[in-house]
Design a binder for these strands. Structure first.
Lengths: 138, 138
DNA sequence: GGGGAAACTGAAAATCTTTCGCATCTTGCT
DNA sequence: AGCAAGATGCGAAAGATTTTCAGTTTCCCC
């Protein structure tokens, strides 16, 4: 259960952390902004401040439990770290997010970085477009 | 000259716009934050407010003259739209930015988007790492 | 070449997201 | 239970960007 993951991350098991991890695991969406998490907590009548949400999410990120993504639009979104890296397809109209992995692209990135003398630490590929539903909707 | 580009964008030709476009074209760097542009204006003794810099850059973006990029680190950077799309390699230590284009990756993106029913509008691929210089520096 | 409406601008105030400061609680260990 | 380290909540602060508003400028037409 959640407590183990938190403990293994070297963090104390506290109510806010357990709640937040629970929300990340059981909310319908895989990608939540800090604000989303906060609203969800409020709707559950939890007395947890927004500052704590940010702090906890940042700690979880440091511990490798979640990943922080900076899509367009100002705020960051967090998602549970599912182990494998993946990229995103984001619908600019409805916000729908599809994850994908493509080893061909990954390989090319490595090759390109090498050509320029870079050692890759991380990367972010986001494709913005209209999903099938939104293309028809207009 | 700059005036034509501004006029063609449907914007009035004003001193701030001409100056800012000039800076984007003639400053050494291709990637400038609003703050960078503002500082450059100050160093030229121009009486142009930061708000105007943001307004102008946003208008230029809407007109397709420049592209706005959201790299990690809070602030956006703007670059002249050179016509062709390209991706970026960013050094997380010194901030060095290298542009690249890879048709293999572009093609895969299109194929992947199609598989998911998306129509691509835009995309952003940023690879973060350490450039050759920074790898040695430690 | 002047008049005026629409567009533009600077400065300050307002927003928005995220982080910090600090006094007060909790957790984990003894 | 008892304590020190670590957490939390709240309000304030910070940083980036946007808006407001009143005064200015540009552009088009006569």
């Amino acid at each position: 259960m959640e407590n183990q993951q938190i403990k293994q991350a070297g963090l104390k098991v506290t109510a806010p952390r357990v709640k937040i991890l629970g929300i990340l695991e059981h909310s319908g969406k895989r990608h939540l902004s800090a604000e989303d998490v906060y609203k969800e907590l409020l709707s559950q009548d939890e007395e947890i401040g927004l500052a704590t949400v940010y702090r906890v999410l940042t700690q979880f990120e440091g511990a490798g439990l979640v990943c922080r993504r900076h899509f367009e639009g100002g705020q960051s979104v967090f998602e549970l770290n599912s182990g494998s890296h993946h990229d995103h397809l984001v619908c600019i109209k409805c916000g729908k997010i599809v994850e994908f992995v493509d080893s061909l692209i990954e390989d090319r990135q490595i090759a390109i970085a090498a050509e320029h003398g870079f050692r890759i630490e991380d990367h972010s590929l986001v494709v913005y477009g209209l999903c099938a539903g939104c293309q028809n909707a207009r």
